[in-house]
Design a protein around this nucleic acid. Structure first.
Lengths: 224, 224
DNA sequence: TCCGGGCGTTAAGAATCCGTCAGGAACCGG
DNA sequence: CCGGTTCCTGACGGATTCTTAACGCCCGGA
């Protein structure tokens, strides 16, 4: 469970990450390119995969797509450029989160811990609880301060998708295609309207949300 | 009881599942297609069957249908696409639960545990009481203020399905397919008529129901 | 400093859904 | 054959939900 696969073509970075992660209790396996990464992931079940998007043999998004055909091991993406949209495509392909290079090791470790929390929680949680509301996925019911909260079907769909993936960054496209269908990927307007409604119904302070967070330009994230 | 049959045509997934499940105490047998799965299930009594819907030789739903002709072993379905309805048909055919690919191994394990819990406690206390009426599932009898209430077969079917899942939201489709059959999923009209009749017979205040609740756009819920 | 894109918020019309009623068809037992 | 019960169907107002547009805010880039 504490096994990490780090995929990068830079030997220096690999070495540094191996040392740091090992010092924090992780067992580290490294891979220099996409093919060997996929082979390694098939042979051994990792708790998380750290994947650089700039690989010599294949696009990082391709690695995620091929990996996602049979595994759902969490993937943390290392994105090179700041303003580029490759991290969005990587998230659409199934990545869980991203860190922009150059990154601080503290940030990377924090993201790794977050991902591990999330996978542990996903273990058995038909009921998700936050300080301000509770979601029962099996009963399809939301309560706040002991009171039932009425959600419309669309509101529930969005909330369920976010809550089923705690701390995972869900892109706007993922939300739109999942709730409205793939023909509505341009209607980011809908998301703003419904996220506002959800926050008004669930957040203590809708203008300053603590659990339904916005990742500007990318998507939304549920924080337990 | 801890024997699991995993049916999938992807050797990678089979291998990964075999390793993981074995590590969690299950005895795993694998099958690559529907025919061998049915043969294997006939030869050995499994505690649960994990079945991928996308098989090379036959439709996954067909496997369930043929299996259900002689066995009631729990079936956990692996569904490929997110938005498709094959999981609905699989559940209609007799599957117990489903997991959408790609799935987390934690989620799969949780579902397996849930299924085992459910099969163990199959027999239940068949009398449900509310402040305004009482339902005896074994006797097939409903009383209100000590008086028997006459229910038509259709009314009983709806009430039974709701009462057997207290506090759980039952979708319109579930009700329609359960009572009228899967060809009637568009006739939400029926539900409105019969829910009104049930409320008139059972609720203290039919216009303001306290136990047979409507969830607009989704379905109905029984509140004890 | 100005500009523009992305976001949150609000409101109003359109579309959908629900409860209700009633008439007629189908079914069943006597 | 007949009376009674159950079921199906359509229609109606009222309520809920969805869609769409518009406006102001904030922040980063020019």
């Amino acid at each position: 469970m504490n096994d990490v696969l780090v995929v990068d073509d830079d030997p220096h970075l690999l070495k540094a990450l191996k040392i740091t992660l090992h010092a924090h209790g992780y067992t580290v396996v490294t891979a220099p390119d996409g093919e060997s990464a996929l082979r390694s992931a098939a042979r051994h079940p990792f708790g998380v995969i750290v994947l650089d998007l700039g690989l010599p043999d294949m696009d990082g998004t391709t690695v995620i797509t091929r990996l996602r055909q049979w595994s759902s091991v969490p993937v943390l993406v290392l994105s090179a450029r700041h303003g580029s949209n490759d991290k969005v495509t990587a998230l659409d392909a199934g990545a869980d989160d991203y860190v922009t290079k150059p990154f601080g090791l503290d940030e990377l470790l924090a993201r790794l811990r977050a991902i591990q929390r999330r996978t542990i929680q996903a273990d058995e949680a038909p009921v998700i609880t936050t300080p301000s509301f509770t979601v029962d996925l099996a009963m399809r019911r939301v309560t706040r301060n002991g009171q039932d909260v009425r959600l419309t079907p669309t509101e529930w769909g969005i909330l369920e998708l976010l809550v089923r993936n705690p701390e995972k960054l869900i892109t706007q496209q993922q939300l739109l295609t999942e709730i409205w269908g793939s023909a509505y990927t341009k209607e980011a307007n809908y998301l703003r309207v419904y996220m506002a409604q959800l926050r008004r119904k669930l957040e203590q302070e809708p203008g300053n949300p603590r659990h339904l967070l916005t990742e500007a330009g990318i998507g939304y994230r549920f924080q337990p």
